[in-house]
Simulated assay, not measured.
Amino acid sequence: MTTRHPVGGGGGTLEIEFTLEDVARTRFAVSPLWEVVASVRVLKAADSHDLHRSWVEQVRPMLAAAKLDPAPLFDLVSVPTVGIPGVLVPPPTTPQPSLEVELTTLRATPLAQLSTTKSAHLPEAMAALRADPERELARLADTIAAYWEVALAPYWPRLSALLQGDIAHRAHRFAEGGAHALLDSLDPQLTWDTGTLQLPNRFTSGPRRLGGRGLLLVPSAFTWPRIFSTLADDEAVPTLRYPARGIGTLWDPPRASCSDALAGVLGRTRARLLAELTTPASTTDLARRLDITAGGVSQHLTAMRAAGLVNAHRTGRVVRYARTSVSEALVAANTTST
C-alpha cells in the first residue's frame, strides 16, 4: 500500500478523473484513527500549529502524567510529513466507525500489505512491524488506544460535532448544486473542472483515474492546512482527507453561562458544572471554580454521568470529566439562546 502524501506547498498538480460511476460512488466517512495520527503530527510540531495550541497545552501534561510510551505510534509519524504508512490509517469501512472498529482492521493487517508499504522515510519503524507483525501490530493498537483515552476521548464529542457538521454542510451543498458544488467547495486548494478534481501536490502530479471506485471524503480537525490523499491506481479505496469547516473556532471556549432554561431542568449547580466543562476538568478544579465542596461536585458529576451527560477519563491519578455529545448539544443550544 502506498503512503499518504500531503497536498500543497509547491510541486505539481494531481488531476483526479471522475467517471459517472465515480461520482455516484463518492461518499463521506469520519475516521477516529486518522484523527489520532493527524493529532500526533500536531503534537510533534506544535510550533507550526497555533490553531491547536490550547489543545496541545492541555494534552502534553496529561500524556506525561499518564506515563504512556508513545514510541510505537510516534515513530510511524514523521515531521515534517513526507508520507504516512498506509497500514497506520486504513480507510474507514463504515461512515462512522468507532476507534475500536478501526483498530480491529489495523490488528488484522495482512503481512503482504506490510511488505509492500513504502517506508523510505521510516525504515526502522516499519522494519519492526515486518519482523514480528502480530506482536508489533497489537502493541501499536494498544498504544493508539491508550493515547486516544488521554488525548482525544475527552474532546471527541466536540470534535465529532465539528466533523458531522462539516458533512451536513457538504450534503447541503450537494442538494443545492449537485456534485460540482460539493467537490468545488471542499477546500480552496481544490478545483473542479469538467469531471476532474485538481489539487496541488508537493510529491506527485498528473492524472489519477478512480476507475469506478469513487472517492472517500474524510473531514479532519487536525489535518489543516493540508490535504492528504491516497489515490494510487491499485488502491482499493481512493481517499481524500481534508480540513473540516470551523476549525478556527474549535477550541474557543463557549461563554460559560448557565441559562435559566437549562437550570430549570437540571438544577442550577449541575447546569453551572456543565457550563464550566468547556475543557476536561477534575473534581478539584470544578470545586475551586464554583466555590462548591469537592464532595458536592462529585455527587453531581456521578448523577450526570449516570444520565449520560458527562464521561470520566483517568490520567495517572487524576480523573477528568468531560461533556458527552448530548450535553455539548444542550449547552450549545442554551448558550445560543441566552
Rank of each mutant, 00 (worst) to 15 (best):
223 T>G: 01
255 R>I: 02
310 V>E: 03
300 H>K: 04
191 T>H: 14
214 G>D: 06
320 R>T: 15
304 M>E: 06
254 P>Y: 01
313 H>F: 13
199 L>D: 08
252 D>H: 10
220 S>K: 03
306 A>M: 06
285 D>I: 02
224 W>A: 07
267 G>W: 01
231 L>K: 03
238 P>E: 15
280 P>F: 11
268 R>Y: 12
272 R>H: 05
212 G>M: 05
237 V>M: 14
301 L>W: 10
285 D>Y: 07
216 L>F: 13
249 T>G: 11
206 G>H: 01
292 I>M: 14
214 G>V: 12
293 T>Y: 12
203 F>D: 12
278 T>V: 13
300 H>W: 04
312 A>V: 12
294 A>Y: 02
232 A>E: 03
304 M>W: 09
319 V>M: 04
257 S>E: 14
218 V>A: 08
224 W>R: 12
209 R>F: 10
196 T>N: 08
271 A>P: 03
298 S>V: 02
267 G>Q: 01
270 R>F: 04
207 P>N: 09
222 F>T: 06
204 T>A: 05
211 G>N: 03
307 A>Q: 13
282 S>L: 14
302 T>M: 07
223 T>L: 06
227 I>F: 01
279 T>V: 13
293 T>D: 15
286 L>W: 15
287 A>R: 08
229 S>Q: 05
219 P>Y: 13
210 L>N: 12
290 L>I: 10
242 Y>K: 12
302 T>C: 07
306 A>W: 00
299 Q>I: 13
268 R>F: 11
210 L>C: 14
197 L>S: 13
320 R>P: 09
246 G>V: 02
199 L>Y: 10
300 H>R: 06
276 E>K: 13
225 P>G: 14
247 I>C: 15
242 Y>V: 12
295 G>M: 00
239 T>D: 15
215 L>F: 00
278 T>P: 03
284 T>V: 14
269 T>G: 03
243 P>W: 08
304 M>F: 14
274 L>R: 05
310 V>D: 04
276 E>P: 02
270 R>I: 00
289 R>K: 14
256 A>H: 12
190 L>N: 06
303 A>K: 13
247 I>E: 03
249 T>H: 11
197 L>D: 15
